[in-house]
């Protein structure tokens, strides 16, 4: 139960951060991605702000195996720079550049009642579902 309350508070903080920073506004995001146009560097500062707080937190948990709520620390184990990482990143980047939405902001904008954000989010969930269907088939074919 405690972990759910923390997750709710973290999600709320995350969403408020996206709104305050301007990340929830595709026009602002595309202004950042448009290097050759009238460039708006704001989103670089979003990243710097997030890492300024995030980095010490990740240093704190180094070498630990349990969280403050005694949950197991589940950090990514893969260090591979492989084809899925590159191709997935390319596909994601193209989609991000087309609409100005990445996953978090699409959910915030949906919560703000934006119909177009809902359409994007439903398509995004479909894309994730297609990935999963493919991944399951691959596993089945290998076993």
């Amino acid at each position: 139960m405690k972990s759910r309350i923390i997750a709710l508070m973290a999600g709320l903080t995350f969403g408020l951060g996206l709104m305050l920073s301007g990340m929830a506004n595709p026009e602002k995001v595309l202004g950042f991605l448009d290097l050759a146009g009238a460039w708006d560097p704001s989103l670089a500062l979003v990243m710097i702000g997030a890492i300024t707080v995030g980095l010490p937190a990740f240093q704190l948990v180094k070498g630990r195996s349990r969280s403050l709520l005694k949950e197991p620390l589940q950090l990514p184990t893969s260090a591979d720079i492989d084809r899925p990482l590159i191709i997935g990143g390319l596909l994601f980047g193209v989609g991000w550049g087309l609409a100005g939405f990445c996953p978090g902001p699409a959910i915030v904008a949906t919560g703000a009642g934006q119909e177009k954000a809902l359409v994007f989010t439903l398509a995004m969930l479909t894309g994730m579902g297609i990935f999963q269907f493919g991944a399951r088939k691959t596993v089945a074919a290998q076993s």
Binding site: A7, T13, G17, L20, S21, L45, V46, R66, L69
Partner: peptide
């Protein structure tokens, strides 16, 4: 932008430190 980013970082820190 920086303040919003810091909130995003705080959210990530909360989820990491408490929930792992």
């Amino acid at each position: 932008a920086f303040a919003g980013g810091a909130l995003i970082g705080l959210a990530s820190a909360l989820l990491l430190l408490f929930n792992g």
